[in-house]
């Protein structure tokens, strides 16, 4: 049994102005095949990636926000969103996509993936990760 490492993907950019958000999402989905302990952090402008109601038809770009809802299928279900970053942007949990996962060990009960946490708690999660990948 190879050792499982704690991976943390840190997302700090808004979704469409730069390629970081989409690249991070693709890396997470590809990396999910390696069955490591994966967490995602959304802070600063990264919280904009998870907002509901994105519609890119008029700008001619791919709307990749529905793909975040597939993360649960890929066993990526620890998604941390920083409270201070939401507050600074006039956002709350209600503005974010409802991301869920199904717990195989609990009769496939649907559970929330998103946890809104403070900057202090976020710092702890960063501190406790073996590998931090920043986008």
């Amino acid at each position: 049994m190879p050792e499982t490492k704690k991976f943390l993907y840190v997302n700090r950019k808004a979704p469409y102005g730069t390629i970081y958000a989409l690249e991070a999402l693709e890396v997470v989905l590809i990396g999910a095949a390696f069955e490591q302990d994966v967490s995602l952090a959304f802070l600063d402008d990264g919280v904009y990636q998870l907002t509901k109601g994105q519609d890119t038809k008029a700008v001619g770009m791919k709307n990749f926000s529905p793909t975040y809802k597939a993360l649960g299928d890929y066993d990526v279900n620890k998604i941390y969103v920083e409270q201070e970053s939401l507050d600074a942007r006039g956002l709350s949990l209600d503005d974010l996509l409802p991301l869920t996962w199904e717990d195989e060990d609990d009769d496939w009960a649907e559970k929330d993936s998103i946890k809104v946490i403070s900057a202090t708690e976020m710092a702890q999660i960063m501190e406790q990760s073996d590998i931090v990948l920043s986008f």
């Binding site: 808004a14 979704p15 469409y16 904009y48 907002t51 509901k52 109601g53 994105q54 519609d55 890119t56 038809k57 008029a58 700008v59 770009m61 709307n63 926000s65």
Partner: peptide
């Protein structure tokens, strides 16, 4: 820009 608002889900 309206289209940029829509893309980002801003009502």
């Amino acid at each position: 820009m309206g289209p940029d608002l829509e893309a980002r889900g801003i009502n």
